[in-house]
Nucleic acid binder design. Structure first.
Lengths: 225, 225
DNA sequence: GCAATAGTGTCTATTAGACAATATGGG
DNA sequence: CCCATATTGTCTAATAGACACTATTGC
């Protein structure tokens, strides 16, 4: 029997769209090691509080954002004796999505140690192996956005097709064809037009949509019980 | 600070093809809890031995199979206080692939507590949440087999295109079109015909192929440092 | 009418599936 | 020649991308 117990933690890549750009929430480290470098929000597992590691991930987000829980999904697990100087560590990585309209409230002007950093990352000091983790989480996100179901988590309840397309473009980092994009949406019946409601800017107003009733996002992570 | 340390384990769904059927390796439990039920091979993390949880998974397989390490990939993590009566537990799930020609040696006539069980599972007593885990791992496998790169791990070094197709069919559980299947392979240059070598059955012999030189399987799991 | 955005239609190149046709080896 | 399998070719339906066209609003 062995009594060396590993450190177990959850780290979260929280994504949103700001200025038409995909961004991830990073926090500047206050303590050693890697003081001053930017890292993903994370928390240690507290078995007496957390029903699962997903709860741990939500706690990690709550500390910095104070917002209701966004969409969470497992990405990968990293483990080994050398990842953290404190000892053998296990990190379960999640990605999470924050609706576009809530993004400004999280990392506002006041907090200097919280930032929405554009993805892909520019040269900036990133702590631990988090640069690689962010790449991995981004790739996973891009795969999922192929059938534009997941990006609904990045939009407010009501949205226009143009907004949906812009979100997909920001995630993928490239332009999409308007015609093809809308064709695909006609086939899945996951979107419902909100009758009579339109969003009027300066020019022709657009039809507003919402997710279909009882719409559930497919998830590969662990179910409840 | 909290001194309740969770149990950390790795469980592995080892797949192979036997009698043209996708099968998973299960082990009949010897001890309580769930004595007599069938479970995936697993092992507890030993931080002083395992460089990572992938090593733990390999150890779990070595105990029962004594074979060289097959292809391993992370599927998901399950955690919570109620999964195991011994306490808060964390299981990292992997799937693994064993080449078709090595399958008979693993679960032979002698060992009554080891079996290659056809997937999807028939009504049989499956321990813990392993039935659900096997479904999840199978779904992952089926996704990956769409570009027929991964099934090379299920074949011996030299193989014919018909064999490759049969493996894909076994994994997906449905027939594929011969012509379309071969067309796709022409495009990726991952297969190389072995010049002059052919496999002769009773009728027209088939060209043997192998994976291209320096061929690396894409993996999303953690890299070496 | 003009500007700017929303929404639709058309053409074409690519692809997947069904299925036919040809090739080769052993009797 | 016949059989069974390997390998290639052809036709067609579905799909994605490029791009043009029409529609609607405020001014």
């Amino acid at each position: 029997m062995n009594f060396l117990s590993p450190i177990v933690a959850a780290d979260v890549a929280l994504f949103t769209i700001l200025d038409s750009t995909l961004r991830v929430l990073l926090i500047q480290r206050d303590n050693e090691p890697q003081k001053g470098a930017w890292a993903l929000p994370g928390a240690l597992l507290k078995p007496d509080i957390d029903q699962s590691l997903e709860d741990t991930a939500r706690r990690a987000l709550a500390v910095k954002t104070h917002l209701k829980i966004p969409h969470l999904e497992q990405v990968s697990v990293f483990s080994g004796p050398d990842r953290d100087p404190r000892g053998y560590s296990i990190s379960v990585i999640f990605y999470a999505l924050l609706p576009i309209d809530l993004a400004p409230a999280v990392a506002g002007q006041k907090a200097k140690d919280v930032a929405w950093v554009p993805v892909p990352l520019r040269k900036r000091s990133i702590a631990f192996d988090h640069r690689h983790i962010i790449q991995l989480a981004t790739a996973r996100l891009q795969k999922k956005v192929e059938q534009p179901v997941l990006p609904l988590h990045l939009l407010p309840e009501k949205f226009t097709l143009t907004q949906l397309q812009q979100v997909c473009e920001a995630v993928l980092g490239r332009k999409l064809d308007k015609s093809s994009f809308r064709r695909k949406l006609k086939d899945d019946h996951t979107l419902v037009p909100i009758s009579k409601e339109v969003e009027g800017g300066a020019y022709r107003p657009a039809q507003l949509y919402r997710a279909a009733d009882g719409f559930r996002f497919e998830s590969e992570s662990e179910p409840k019980k």
